[in-house]
């Protein structure tokens, strides 16, 4: 007869990674410090990859001279307008597709056909249609934001629990009250996670559109710095873009916390 004898060994640990803010900060600081050390020691050729200190100096100079704001303000404007237009229309069509059979198949057919087109490829066409000015850039952004928003919203509406809608009907709520009080709030988490996707798409398209045809804007600034082999300014522009990305995702995080506190 096999026998066991002894204390029970604990075997329920692990698989529970925890967040450590200090480790995150230390990693970023460490990488920048290593980079700076490598550049100072001459291991990293600063002509190709400038040292963090040089980038910081360039950023400071750009800020003081007003050059940074001149470009950034134009980019922010384009980002805001393009994203908002794409989002508003996208949520509208997404709701329509999610709610009404008449629009469902036609809407989804168009979205499925147009969604996979790389939007950057459309920039030259939009320039022909809407001119080299603001129009083509805004349309590129709005177009890129529109489709993922439609898909996220329609998916959110599809996943609204049927039981809740029936509950609303059984309490005599009107069609619009059901949309306002049940469908929209239930679809909101899906719509907000769509924002995460569309905001990063918007930044990519912004830079691309500004590189193809713009005098101002962070994309144009980065491109012209590159043409001049001005790597300090080039990387300063990239740092600004990455900070912009972080900022946008922070704002969305706040929005989620404010609107989805019930979860």
């Amino acid at each position: 007869m096999p026998r066991i004898d002894g204390p029970i060994a604990f075997r329920g640990g692990g698989f529970a990674p925890s967040d450590r803010t200090w480790a995150a900060v230390a990693t970023l600081v460490g990488v920048v410090a290593l980079w700076q050390a490598g550049a100072s020691a001459g291991v990293i050729p600063t002509l190709f990859l400038p040292a963090p200190v040089s980038i910081a100096r360039a950023l400071w100079a750009l800020t003081v001279s007003g050059e940074l704001w001149k470009n950034l303000s134009v980019s922010l404007m384009r980002l805001a307008v393009g994203w908002i237009v794409g989002t508003v229309f996208g949520i509208g069509l997404g709701l329509a597709v999610g709610l009404w059979s008449v629009l469902r198949s036609p809407g989804m057919a168009l979205v499925s056909a147009l969604f996979p087109i790389p939007k950057i490829a459309l920039v030259p066409l939009f320039i022909i249609w809407f001119g080299i000015g603001e129009g083509s850039k805004l349309v590129t952004l709005a177009f890129g934001v529109f489709f993922p928003t439609v898909i996220a919203t329609a998916g959110g509406v599809d996943n609204v629990p049927r039981g809740l809608i029936r509950m609303g009907q059984s309490f005599g709520l009107s069609h619009t009250a059901i949309i306002r009080k049940i469908v929209l709030p239930a679809a909101l988490p899906a719509i907000l996670s769509g924002f995460r996707v569309t905001s990063s798409i918007a930044i990519v398209l912004l830079v691309a559109a500004e590189m193809i045809g713009a005098e101002r804007g962070i994309g144009a600034f980065v491109l012209s710095a590159g043409n001049l082999y001005d790597t300090d300014n080039l990387l300063a522009g990239i740092v600004v873009l990455s900070v912009l990305g972080l900022l946008v995702s922070w704002v969305i995080g706040r929005l989620e916390r404010a609107l989805l506190g019930w979860r």
């Binding site: 809740l164 029936r166 309490f171 005599g172 239930a186 909101l188 019930w262 979860r263």
Partner: peptide, 18 residues
């Protein structure tokens, strides 16, 4: 009366965001 025929549901059907 605001709703003559009114249900109570097995799964409660509460709105989690309210």
């Amino acid at each position: 009366c605001l709703n003559a025929l009114t249900y109570v549901f097995q799964d409660f059907s509460l709105l989690p965001w309210r």
